[in-house]
Computed example of a mutant assay.
Amino acid sequence: MTTPGEDQQTKSNPPTRTVRPNLPGPRGGSPGAGAPVVPALQRRPRLPALDGLRLICALAVAGYHYGVSWRLDGIHPPAHFVPHAGHVLIYGFLGVEVFFLISGFVICMSGWGRSPRDFLASRAGRLYPAFWACVLLTAAVVTVLPVTLGVPVSGQPSVTDVAVNLTMLPDLLNVPMVDTVYWTLWVELRFYLFFACLTWTGLTYRRTATFCTAWLVAAVVVPAHSQSLLTDIVMPQWAPYFIAGVTMYLMHRHRPTAWLCALVVACWLLSLQSVHVRVLDVHPGFPVPTWPAPVIITIAYVVLIAIALGATDRLTWRWLTTAGALTYPFYLLHQRIGYSIIRNVHAHTGWPAAPLILGAVVLLLGVSWLVHRFVERPLMPALGSLLRGRRARAA
C-alpha cells in the first residue's frame, strides 16, 4: 500500500527542494500558474519523516491483523489471546487511511514535472517487481503451511489465481486475491490513473488545486446521484485522503493559501464521517468505541501538515530511509504469511500469541529487506526504463 507503494524519494536539503526554478521556493511567494517542466529524471526531494510514518502505518495494520482480526485456535475470540492489547490494536486498520493520505502527497511530489508516460513508468517500476515477488512468496508459503480455519483468508491459490494476481487486477477481474490486503492496490491504481490524466494537462498549482476541488465535489455529489460504476471511479470513501495529500504537497511546494486550507479542512471533515462508519463496521467480538478513530485521523492530518510545512526537515536519520524501503514489501507479505506462521507454530508448540506476533513481525521485516535489496533495487529502474522507451533511456 503508498499504499504502501510510494516512490523511493531521493534526499536533498530543504533550501534546494524547489524543482521548478522560476517558481517561488517552498513556503514562500505566490503560487505560479505555469512554468517550464523540469527533466523527467531529475532527482526528487526526500522527506525522511514520511518514510517513518509509512512504516508505523504498516506495523499498525499488521497489529490489527495479528492481534484482532483472526483467531489463534479458531474458537476463542482474539481478545482471549491479546486481552490488553486487542482494544488498542483494533484501530490499526486506520493505517490504510493514513497510507492513502501519504500517497496523495508523495505521488504529487514524484509526478511533478513528469510526462504521463514517465509518471506511469515510474509507478509500474515502483510497484510491480516487489509485488510479483510477494505474490509468489505468499502463494508458496500458504501452499506449504495452509491455514483454513478462523481467518479472513484461507485455502491454497490455484496457478490461474496466482497468474491473474500478478497483473494486480484480481479485484477488477473477479478472481480471488492471493492475499486480501491487495484490495488497497486497486484503489491506488485508480488514483494513479486520475493523476496520470492530470500530468497530461501539465501540472501547475492552479490546475492541481482545481482538480482536487472538482474531485472533492464529485466525491460528495456522486454517491447520492449515480450508479455504482461512477461511484467506483470517484471512490468517495477514499478520495478525501488522496485529495488532502495532494493539497498538502501544494502547501509544501508553494505555501498555504485560503484555497488549499479550505480543501484540507473539507477533506478532514469528510474523513471523520467516513472513519466513523468504518469503525461501526468492525466486529471483533468486543465493544469498540468510535471516538479514538477521529482522534487518530486528526493526528495523521496534523502530522502530515507539519511535514508539508517543514517542521520535520531536520529529521535526516538514515534508518528512516530503510524504514520506508521495507514498508511496501512488508505490507504485501505480512497478512497471510504471518497467519500461516503464527497459527502453525502455535499448533505445534502451544506458544502464546505475543511472542509469536513479535517473531512474525521481525521475520517478515527481514524478508522485506531481502525483497527490497534483491528484487526492487535491481528491477525497479530496469522496468521503469523499459517502459519509458528509447527516448527516456537517451535522457
Rank of each mutant, 00 (worst) to 15 (best):
G92H: 12
V181C: 01
Y64A: 11
W70Y: 15
L383C: 09
N344I: 00
I107Y: 00
T327W: 01
L383M: 04
R207E: 07
P176N: 09
R318F: 12
A244N: 05
L229A: 15
V187G: 01
G25P: 12
V361G: 03
R318C: 10
W351P: 10
D171T: 13
G245R: 04
I102Y: 02
A325D: 13
R20C: 10
L365T: 00
S340L: 03
A244E: 03
V303G: 01
P287Y: 08
R207I: 15
A49V: 10
G74V: 08
R54K: 15
I299Y: 09
T138F: 05
L356F: 07
H84T: 15
F330N: 01
H76F: 00
I107N: 04
G92P: 01
Q227C: 07
A49G: 14
R377V: 15
R126T: 08
R255C: 08
G359S: 14
M109N: 02
P152S: 13
R390T: 06
V371C: 05
L280F: 02
A139Y: 13
I243D: 06
C267E: 06
Y339H: 10
R314S: 13
M168T: 05
A347I: 00
V37C: 00
H87F: 11
T208V: 14
F131S: 00
L270I: 07
L169Q: 13
P83C: 08
R117M: 09
I357P: 08
L363F: 15
L166A: 09
